[in-house]
């Protein structure tokens, strides 16, 4: 196979055989409860140096409570896939948790710009679609997939993609390496204690992200009875055997939205944006992460029941999600 051109970006090298062995040796195949606290889930399943993938659509259905726990536990030298992510990448960099970012799209302000200039964080270029597609490759258990974009651009040059001559058509075709993160964080609408999970609405790539990763932590708005799952098996998007931890996290997407359940807290998003612009991320993180011991405590002491009720009441669209 002729390689016509290749990018120079560093990438997490695919190793499908090692991945298969990891799955064989570490995944729980029995129906056992995986319900645990966010503290235990992050402590057990996120290690310093891990590649972490999380699924969200900007401020939609992101695993925000798990991200805050990563910050609270001061995980270090993480490498993240920033596909279609907003403020999370900024928070993780501001907290010193992340030193490598594969970029699709993320909110960029002075925190990331300054960290890049100081050499504290390295960026590698992809696109949202390319990262979701790399995760698809990872979830298929293959080392790479061909795709018909990236080629010809500077994104290609700064990525780990290769341009080859397609052995079937003879035309140029781009290849991207499978992405198999060490750990995935996915926030879901409902799951049972074993991890059989339902996700409602348009999504980015929660299933690919979940299945491509070695370890998988779910946070869920609701833990439902397993009998309920088995009455509507078509709705199960992630099967239990892929799941390592189930964290019950009502408002787990806060300050973002979970469509059909609650609206994004725009006031909070403004506060976080201003904190970044004014160089006050330390204060922001102290208030919302370090000064509270858990997500639940943050909801009670920093957000308040009144605000939570309002965010729920304002989400009037249920159609397609819960009816």
């Amino acid at each position: 196979m002729t390689i016509v051109a290749e990018g120079t970006g560093v990438f997490l090298a695919p190793d499908p055989d090692a991945h298969r062995r990891y799955i064989r040796d570490h995944k729980e195949k029995g129906l056992v409860s995986k319900v645990m606290s966010e503290h235990e889930a992050i402590e057990r399943f996120v290690d310093d140096g891990d590649y972490v993938a999380y699924d969200c659509n900007l401020w939609v259905r992101g695993p925000a409570s798990l991200m805050r726990e990563i910050i609270r536990q001061k995980k270090r030298e993480l490498w993240i896939a920033a596909k279609f992510t907003a403020h999370d990448a900024t928070m993780l960099v501001a907290a010193g948790c992340v030193n490598r970012i594969d970029v699709g799209w993320m909110e960029v302000g002075r925190v990331i710009t300054e960290a890049q200039a100081a050499g504290d964080v390295q960026l590698f270029e992809w696109s949202n679609g390319a990262l979701a597609y790399r995760l698809l490759a990872g979830s298929l258990g293959v080392p790479f997939l061909p795709l018909r974009y990236l080629g010809g651009t500077d994104v290609f040059k700064f990525s780990g993609a290769k341009l080859i001559e397609d052995p079937y058509t003879g035309q140029s075709i781009c290849l991207v390496p499978a992405l198999t993160p060490d750990v995935a964080l996915v926030h879901v609408n409902q799951c049972d204690e074993f991890g059989n999970a339902r996700i409602f609405g348009a999504v980015i790539s929660p299933v690919e992200t979940a299945m491509a990763s070695k370890k998988l932590i779910l946070s869920t708005e609701e833990i439902v009875d397993s009998d309920e799952i088995r009455r509507h098996p078509q709705q199960t998007r992630i099967p239990y055997y892929a799941v390592d931890a189930v964290v019950h996290a009502p408002f787990g997407g806060y300050p973002g939205t979970v469509p059909g359940l609650y609206k994004a807290d725009v006031e909070h998003l403004m506060e976080s944006g201003v904190a970044q612009m004014q160089g006050k991320m330390d204060e922001y993180l102290e208030k919302w992460v370090f000064s509270v011991s858990s997500h639940q405590e943050m909801l009670e002491q920093r957000v308040g029941q009144e605000k939570l009720d309002t965010l729920k009441a304002e989400e009037t669209i249920k159609e397609g999600y819960y009816e």
């Binding site: 993320m106 080629g151 651009t153 994104v155």
Partner: peptide
């Protein structure tokens, strides 16, 4: 230069695939 942007933006997002496909 890439390592020293005067101003960094979010990235291509989905634009690369949209403009290609």
């Amino acid at each position: 230069a890439y390592e020293r942007p005067a101003r960094r933006f979010g990235g291509p997002g989905g634009a690369n695939e949209i403009a290609s496909l």
